[in-house]
Amino acid sequence: MSVTFTVTFSLIDPQTPGSIKINILPKDIETMAHRELAFQIFIRFLMANNINIDINKKEIDEKIVSKILQSLVTSNKDERESAVALMRHVYLKCIKMRPYIRQQINILFHRFIYVNGNLHGISELLEIANDIISGYNTPLKADIEDFLLKILLPLHNTDSLAQYHGQLSDCVVLFVSRYPVLTATFVRSLIKIWPKTFTEKEILLLDEIEDILATTSQEEFLKMLVPLFCQIIECAVSPCYKVAERALLLCGSDGIMNHMEKNHKAIMPIVFPALYRISHRHCNAEIKKLVCTVLKMFLNINKDLFMKLKKGMTTLKVINSRKENIVILGNNED
């Protein structure tokens, strides 16, 4: 049964114009039109600035918040959208209820991640989470860090990631921009759960990495440089064209170029061998073209290091060729 609210108003003091008391009672309403009307009345009342609203824990309590949250995870998309708007205003106006709202939202996320992966309303919950993150204040607290690493991070590991990744990525990017010290920790943790054979998810995660790097400090970048570029180059050599293309485009994006220029001496030895092999062996002309673009970028950044790495690859190629010839001669003698 869908749940919404009836809202009744009564004057607290007839002598005080605009003095209104709110009384909110949960009530079952059968039609979406009625539910929508009730939500809109409630929202308009919460938005009112020209009246004295007596809203406290007595009027909007845990029971009311729980009913709104039930509407957030219903299968009816219109109802979820109305509930999002209502919950945002409740969270903004009812400061005493904020800890309870955060707790209950975390419980819903936990249920989705570990119990029921088919829960509706994850996108809508993430929209509210984004508002909550916007209101976080420094210094960093343990429960705030837990939200990033125990809620937002595991949400990347579900099969339905594509359905809510836009909202999830927005939350993560906002979070690490407010708490930069957690950027490297999050990215390293994300790499540990990186999908191996799920093309769509890999592309989504590469998109998110690009957005994160756009706001990453040099200090945090250095902490994740090695695992990050090992993962990027692993994607670049993927047999899946779309994954390889996205990884190579990431290497040339504005968000990462500045970091690559500053840290090329550490990055080039990681990525050059694979890029060099792709440029000579890959069967797809578009991938070869993208690789050549990245290699040309490295050449312009540091020609001496580029030529040194290229010489190393040429020498290795000669050595491997000689080993192959020795094996062939040995087999012929047999």
Rank of each mutant, 00 (worst) to 15 (best):
K223P: 00
F39E: 06
T185K: 12
M313K: 06
V291G: 12
M32I: 11
D211F: 08
I287W: 00
Y136A: 02
E79F: 01
T216F: 01
L222V: 01
S253Q: 00
M32Y: 13
L46R: 00
M47Q: 10
V3R: 05
A48R: 04
L299N: 11
N332Q: 12
N325H: 08
L152S: 01
K21Y: 08
S134H: 09
P14G: 07
N56A: 06
N325F: 02
V176I: 13
V318Q: 13
F45P: 06
S75N: 13
N130E: 06
I267C: 05
S321C: 10
N118P: 07
G330P: 03
K323A: 12
K311R: 13
G330E: 11
V84P: 13
K262Q: 14
T6R: 14
E36H: 07
K96S: 15
Q15C: 10
R44S: 05
H282Q: 05
E81Q: 13
L161E: 06
C283T: 15
I22Y: 10
I128Q: 02
V3H: 10
L309H: 08
L225D: 02
A274Q: 11
P14H: 05
E200D: 13
Q103K: 13
V181S: 15
G135I: 04
H264L: 08
H280Y: 04
I20M: 13
G18L: 01
H34K: 12
W194L: 01
V318S: 13
L182F: 11
G255Y: 02
S10W: 10
F45L: 09
P14I: 07
D28T: 15
R35D: 15
I209K: 00
N258I: 01
L305E: 14
L309V: 06
E127A: 12
E208N: 11
T183W: 02
I151G: 11
Y241I: 06
T197R: 11
Q40Y: 04
L205S: 00
P26H: 02
A247P: 11
K77S: 08
E145D: 14
A142N: 14
A85C: 07
T293H: 10
V65M: 02
I12L: 12
F186S: 10
I256S: 09
L213F: 06
I326R: 04
V65H: 01
F272V: 04
I287C: 03
P180R: 00
E127R: 11
D61M: 02
A214R: 03
H89N: 12
N325A: 09
F298H: 04
T158F: 00
A142M: 13
I101L: 02
L126H: 01
K77L: 07
Y91N: 09
F147Q: 11
N76A: 08
L174C: 14
M224T: 05
P14Q: 08
I55Q: 00
R111V: 09
N118M: 05
L161Y: 01
E62R: 08
D254C: 07
F39V: 05
L205K: 01
R102P: 04
R88C: 09
T315Q: 09
S71N: 09
L299F: 08
